[in-house]
C-alpha cells in the first residue's frame, strides 16, 4: 500500500466508524419476518426506534389503507437521509456522485415525459436523492441547457428529446437515458474494483430481466438491442443471439457465468407460475451477497457504498412487507418476496 493511499484510507476512519454504528440498526431477515406478525402501528414504532423519521399520524390513519402512503414517505425520507449521509462522508465524490446521477437520470425521464404528456399530472414522480434537486433540473429543462451535467451526460437529455420528437415513442427517452446514465456510471466507477463489480452485476441482472421480459412479451429484437445496457459480464451479443432461440439454449450459452443457477431457477419458476418474480428476487439476493463483503472492510469507501445499497435493499424489503400487509397477502407470499438482508 502506497503512503498516499494509506493517508487517504485513514481519512475513512470516521466514516467507517459511523457507518458501523448505523449498520447495527439494519433489520436482519428474522427481524423482518417478525414484523409480519406485528401491527402496523408497532411497525412504525420499530422503524422510528431505528432512526426512521417520525410520522405525525393517528393510529387509525396508519392502520387503514391510506397509511401506506405515509409509511412509503417515511421510508423514502430515510433513504434520502442515507444518500445525504454517504454524500457527506464520501471522500471520493466521483463514485458517490455516479450513484446520485442514476437518480437524476430517472428524474430527467420524468421531466421530459411530463413536458410531452398532454394531460399533465402533478404526481410524485421525482426522487429526492439525485445530484441535482428537482428545481435545478426543472430550470435546466425550461432553459434547455444541461451544461451543469458532466461531459458524457450533458448531451443525453437533448438527444432523448430529439429522439422522442422524431419517433413519438416515450420509450426512446428511456432507452437513451438508461443506457447513457449507466454507461457513465460504469465509466466513473471503473477504477474501484468493488464498485465496478457492483456495476457489472447490476447491469447483468438488469439485462437478464430485460431479456426475459421482452422475450415473454414477444417484442422485436430491435427493442432488446436498444434496451440492453453495456458493461456487464454477459456480452450483449449473447442476449441478441439467443433472443429468438429456446431459453435452454440461452442457459447453455451462459453456463460458465455465475448467473446460471439464478436463470435456471428463475426460468423453472416462470414455467410453473408465469412470473419472473423469483428471477428478480434471486438476482437481488446475488447482488446483496456480493455487497456483504463491504461489511468486513474498514478504511475505504466500500462500507459507505455497502451501506447505501443495503439501505436501498432494506427500503425495498420494508415496502414489500407493508404492501403485503396492507393488501392482506398471506404471510408465506410476503416472506417469499423478501430479499436477502445486509446483516
Amino acid at each position: 500500500m502506497g503512503s498516499n493511499e494509506e493517508e487517504m484510507n485513514t481519512e475513512y476512519a470516521y466514516a467507517s466508524g459511523k457507518i458501523k454504528v448505523l449498520e447495527k440498526r439494519f433489520f436482519n431477515k428474522q427481524e423482518l419476518a417478525g414484523l409480519l406478525e406485528r401491527s402496523l402501528t408497532d411497525i412504525v414504532g420499530e422503524l422510528e426506534s431505528r432512526g426512521y423519521p417520525k410520522i405525525d399520524q393517528e393510529k387509525s390513519v396508519i392502520e387503514n389503507g391510506e397509511g401506506l402512503v405515509f409509511l412509503e414517505e417515511m421510508i423514502d425520507k430515510h433513504l434520502d437521509e442515507a444518500y445525504n449521509l454517504v454524500r457527506e462522508l464520501s471522500l471520493n465524490p466521483v463514485i458517490t456522485n455516479a450513484f446520485l446521477f442514476l437518480n437524476d437520470g430517472h428524474n430527467l425521464k420524468g421531466l421530459i415525459k411530463l413536458k410531452y404528456v398532454k394531460e399533465k399530472k402533478k404526481e410524485n414522480i421525482f426522487l429526492k436523492r439525485g445530484f441535482f434537486t428537482e428545481e435545478e433540473l426543472k430550470k435546466m429543462m425550461e432553459r434547455n441547457i444541461f451544461s451543469a451535467f458532466p461531459p458524457g451526460l450533458r448531451e443525453l437529455p437533448q438527444k432523448a428529446i430529439t429522439a422522442y420528437k422524431h419517433h413519438k415513442n416515450p420509450q426512446r427517452i428511456d432507452f437513451i437515458l438508461d443506457v447513457g446514465f449507466w454507461e457513465y456510471f460504469k465509466n466513473q466507477t471503473g477504477e474501484n474494483e468493488f464498485v465496478n463489480e457492483i456495476g457489472k452485476i447490476r447491469v447483468d441482472l438488469i439485462n437478464l430481466s430485460v431479456f426475459f421480459r421482452l422475450k415473454e412479451k414477444k417484442e422485436k429484437k430491435t427493442i432488446l438491442k436498444q434496451s440492453l445496457l453495456s458493461g456487464g459480464t454477459i456480452v450483449k451479443d449473447k442476449f441478441l443471439r439467443n433472443f429468438s432461440k429456446q431459453i435452454n439454449d440461452f442457459i447453455n450459452d451462459i453456463r460458465f457465468s455465475p448467473y446460471k443457477k439464478i436463470v435456471r431457477e428463475g426460468y423453472d419458476s416462470w414455467e410453473k407460475e408465469h412470473s419472473f418474480a423469483l428471477l428478480e428476487k434471486l438476482g437481488d439476493d446475488f447482488l446483496m451477497n456480493y455487497i456483504k463483503k463491504a461489511k468486513y472492510e474498514f478504511l475505504s469507501i466500500h462500507p459507505l457504498i455497502g451501506y447505501l445499497l443495503a439501505k436501498e435493499n432494506e427500503a425495498k424489503n420494508l415496502r414489500i412487507l407493508l404492501c403485503g400487509k396492507y393488501s392482506n397477502l398471506k404471510e408465506e407470499i410476503i416472506k417469499a418476496e423478501l430479499r436477502e438482508t445486509y446483516v
Partner: peptide, 11 residues
Amino acid sequence: KLTYSLVNTSS
C-alpha cells in the same frame, strides 16, 4: 406498446 423503461421497473 411498451412505454416505460424495463431497466428500473419490476416484472
